[in-house]
Write a protein that binds this DNA or RNA. Structure first.
Lengths: 143, 143
DNA sequence: AGATTAAAAGACATTTTTATCCTTTTTATG
DNA sequence: CATAAAAAGGATAAAAATGTCTTTTAATCT
């Protein structure tokens, strides 16, 4: 659903949101400890975000990463899109391939469509619940 | 959130739910095409599930995998537990480490607690929304 | 201008996940 | 009892994700 890289990136941006602006840039060296992400790896992720215009940065002395006013209007999805790609996040919880919100598989209705009561569904739905009233294999495996 | 392996396993079990019982066992050879999982890999996963008593199997001629009446009462979580381990599934969407349902981080309230309106939250929540009213870094990074 | 600082970029290493192959064990059946 | 069918198990391979290191480029300060 979300790669660690995306989680790292979100944490990083969150840190920047709290600790930076145009006049107070932040070096990776100073933030990686707080967000618990390996320094070089965090640097890479932030560079990628910067390259895609999701966050801002300048090089050289007094340089670093920061969020502009505009940057702060970005959604978390904007971050995730850059790191994981949209497809990965939106993909069906079960569909390894072509199932998504537009073309949902049968399980989608249960766990996918509202991809978020997911844990509860996993715990409370038995195999029996799943298949009741259904005998057609094709219904479950559209792809 | 869910590994492909778990998705594969769920699909496999689903297939068994639809196509097997004590008297009609199913060989991996006959099911892997339908569920779109590599034969040898699916075999491994089903073996693992069988070893943990989540599904049933017998060897030899006319053998194969199947679901007993009891097996059908299992939850999807039972499957996922075996393949991914409980920790992985329950882990916080953002917490790479110790954040979970019991000790939620701040983002948890937003995306984690109801880990399922997640996509919508991602799309609709801006950085600004996230930090409004908060200036304390520690609040965001408990671990 | 020159030295220094910090991100950008890209090559390389490690680990985890996914996938395959091959041998062994079990078991039904003729 | 021999044979063949099928899962079980182990070793290995490939791919993807994660992580590190080194060099290059740009900004700043003296």
């Amino acid at each position: 659903m979300l790669s660690n890289s995306s989680k790292y990136a979100i944490k990083g941006v969150l840190y920047l949101a709290l600790n930076s602006d145009e006049d107070h840039k932040v070096m990776v060296r100073d933030m990686h400890g707080v967000v618990h992400v390996p320094e070089a790896y965090l640097a890479k992720l932030l560079q990628e975000l910067s390259r895609h215009g999701v966050i801002s940065s300048t090089r050289g002395p007094r340089g670093g990463f920061f969020l502009s006013k505009e940057d702060r209007k970005r959604s978390l999805m904007d971050i995730v899109k850059v790191i994981d790609g949209e497809k990965r996040v939106k993909s069906c919880v079960l569909g390894v391939k072509d199932c998504d919100t537009d073309q949902p598989c049968v399980l989608h209705k249960l766990v996918g469509a509202n991809k978020s009561k997911f844990i509860k569904v996993l715990e409370n739905t038995t195999i029996l619940d799943l298949i009741e009233g259904k005998r057609d294999v094709e219904e479950f495996f559209p792809v």
